[in-house]
Amino acid sequence: MSGVDAAHGITIRPVAESGLLVALGDAIDETIVARVMALTGAIDAAALPGVVDVVPSYTTLLLSFDPAVADGEELSEAVRRLAASPPPVQSVPARLVTIPVSYGGEDGPDLAAVSEHTGLAAEEVVRRHAETEYVVACMGFAPGFGFLVGLPPELATPRRADPRTKVPAGSVGIGGAQTGVYPLETPGGWHLIGRTHLHLFDRGRPEPFLLRPGDRVRFQAAGADAAEHPAAAGRR
């Protein structure tokens, strides 16, 4: 069953008797993320019998199924066919989610540390972080936590040497080459550069999760206005 379909760069390996790990690449790359999301959408739309869950990530998707209903080999073949076909018209369109962020100050206690590490002024860190469009590659660590791909490489800052035992909910952080928003108060090791008042996970909402894998995300500096925002005014 673990075959490599060279024409389409897809590898499928079994995960015990109730899972398939479908790999479409081996490096973090927005094109591969897009292919993973397209295949996820196709599998969702096909409503293959027995599929219990699909977990997309940077280069893979994990498909879990009920072995009493579906056969791993047949499901594998179905996934290959879907991967080889053009994306279905019905797949859920990617959305653009805008997240307002109050950068720096008490909301971003590590902005100075990021500025120092990157050699960029704090305002420049904020400007570059906010003007980038990211993609939600996967979600994990906590309910509603999206791992975002697309951080400008010059903003990459390693995790803190001493992680915090409590990161406030809504904090926006940079960890290595990744950025994201903490949906709950949890321990965390990323450098915190700002905070949003939005709840990325609200169990009372009809749509509890603000983000979905494949969504595009932009951060918007709160109070951002051509006249007021220091970065927009060109101050360095």
Binding site: A16, Y58, L61, F141
Partner: peptide, 28 residues
């Protein structure tokens, strides 16, 4: 590269000590 984790997966971090992931595991 981070990927989804199924129930019963045995992952081995850098220290070589296996962890068998159960129902309340982190998903990625």
């Amino acid at each position: 590269v981070s990927e989804g984790i199924g129930h019963g997966a045995v992952q081995v971090p850098g220290d070589g000590r296996p962890i068998v992931l159960l129902a309340a595991r982190q998903t990625i």
